[in-house]
Design a protein around this nucleic acid. Structure first.
Lengths: 212, 212
DNA sequence: CTTTGTGAACAGATTCACAGCG
DNA sequence: CGCTGTGAATCTGTTCACAAAG
């Protein structure tokens, strides 16, 4: 019963459900049930059913979920029925890797613009898109109809880049710099701090070491 | 009151507290209080105090927290008093970027080994470490005293790489491949699926678009 | 007879509000 | 007094268990 309130925790699990369904589709399964989905993503069936029920009634009682149709519904909820255009700001090691990373294309995203402030890099064509000057950000973002940006610049520059992006109308930002960036109401930013992920793992290692 | 049970949600916030404290230290603040920390990381003071209280009584009532000593305590809980050695499996675009990424060194980690299965890459020295054959994983991990590994191989290969890592004694894995990997009891794996992060942002964009 | 969808029970995390301590 | 540390209250998310539906 699509009561216009999907919990954040549910949203975070939707991509994994979509992955599971695509894998089921690849195995030519026409129908899948909540137990099978749960196994594939490492949860329990009740969680899967509750999560999906926030989006609507997409299953058939006694049968399960039609794989193709559930994929379509999830893709629609995730806003990737059509590809979304993403931009990368910062063409250093990480930005370059993100640009070259093949894993976005078949997950609903297309990298259409890359920015840097280093004159040596600007104008260089890589993998079908040219590195643009960060000064042209407003024009290029509008021209390329970018709706998501990834920030891969040093921590010091991240907030000011975020401000430019928001000013240029970008409403969603994935920030790889290890600082919290502020965005105004109406825009969303997510933090992707790789070193923090390692620290969390390290905490668990320490726990293991401690209990000996 | 260090009652041997730190909630997962708290653990996930510890890296951001540490970052905030380091930034306070850089500004020569000798003492900081929960309100200031909360502002820096974007939470509220009660949350900060509760989180820190799971680790111990590190503050002084009426005063706040001594920056240097709290940094030391957090670093200890996060297991990064001494650097931890990490390995990267998969020297493609992403693996290469992780290897070259400068952001790990001052967060407590040292990349000491890189593996790939492509004979053309093996033996090449990059940035002070040589690409090793994935067949030598057990020997090299032991020699380099690796305790955390990052998986940056194609989805298909991720689980088998994880199995080798665990067999070689690695207890913590950060997996960048877009599949859930299984590790036995006693080891920990975290998922770092970049496309999933974009999908979560895209969901929010769709919500915004929907309510118009 | 099977599996969904969902209220109700439960568990866990956040926030409140104040006692306790420097 | 000021700020921490923490029980108690609240809120949010998860799990249970079953009625509803094919």
């Amino acid at each position: 019963m699509s009561n216009l309130h999907v919990p954040m925790t549910t949203v975070q699990r939707l991509p994994s459900y979509l992955q599971a369904l695509i894998s089921a589709q690849a195995q030519r399964m026409p129908v899948i049930n909540s137990v099978e989905i749960a196994e594939m993503v490492g949860t329990n069936a009740a969680q899967v059913r509750k999560d999906l029920s926030y989006l609507g009634e997409y299953g058939t009682r006694g049968v399960g979920y039609d794989v193709d149709s559930l994929i379509a519904h999830l893709a629609r909820w995730l806003g990737i029925e059509q590809h979304r255009n993403v931009a990368i700001v910062g063409f250093g090691r990480l930005g370059g890797a993100l640009q070259g990373y093949g894993g976005f294309g078949d997950r609903g995203f297309r990298v259409v613009a890359v920015f840097d402030d280093d004159p040596d890099k600007i104008g260089e064509p890589y993998n079908g898109c040219t590195v643009e000057s960060i000064d042209d950000i407003e024009i290029v973002l509008a021209r390329e109809k970018v709706d998501i940006a990834m920030i891969a610049v040093p921590a010091m520059a991240a907030q000011s880049v975020a401000d430019s992006l928001v000013a240029a109308g970008v409403k969603a930002i994935l920030n790889f710099a290890p600082v919290r960036i502020e965005v105004p109401e109406g825009a969303i930013a997510r933090q992707a701090d790789l070193a923090a992920e390692l620290q969390i793992l390290s905490f668990h290692l320490s726990s293991l070491e401690r209990q000996t």
